[in-house]
């Protein structure tokens, strides 16, 4: 088991965040329940969409282009994640380790150039 005392500040932040967010959620609910009249009707409980009845389901299909953006984001996210241990241990691994990362970056740059040339990064 590791020493967890260094994570105490994070735990404190987490506790404060949970406390404040639950205050924001539950305090208005409680105040409203205690001070106002609670008489729900069907019209009051209906979805409110800018004053007119909701047209359609909120879960509609959307363009597959969003998916392409998400995939590209994951790939470059992973690339960045691999950069962190490399940057920290660069002294240890020397020139060979440096070259390793350059080859890795080159592989992804090929993909990047392809994406750019094809126009996958352009929206309209």
């Amino acid at each position: 088991m590791v020493d967890l005392s260094q994570y105490l500040p994070i735990l404190l932040f987490l506790g404060v965040a949970i406390a404040i967010s639950s205050i924001f959620v539950f305090l208005p609910m409680g105040v409203a329940r205690l001070t106002g009249a609670h008489k729900p009707t069907a019209a009051k409980l209906a979805e409110y969409e800018c004053g007119f009845p909701a047209f359609e389901d909120s879960r509609s299909q959307f363009d597959v282009r969003f998916y392409l953006v998400a995939i590209l984001f994951i790939i470059f996210d992973l690339e960045a994640a691999f950069l962190f241990p490399w940057a920290v241990s660069l002294e240890e691994i020397g020139i060979a380790g440096w070259a390793t990362m350059m080859v890795f970056l080159f592989e992804l740059i090929i993909g990047f150039i392809y994406a750019w040339k094809v126009g996958a990064l352009e929206w309209e």
Binding site: I71, A115, A120
Partner: peptide, 12 residues
């Protein structure tokens, strides 16, 4: 890295 490249090109 190569797998990531294939994934990227495949998605495009």
């Amino acid at each position: 890295g190569l797998i990531l490249l294939v994934a990227m090109i495949g998605a495009i």
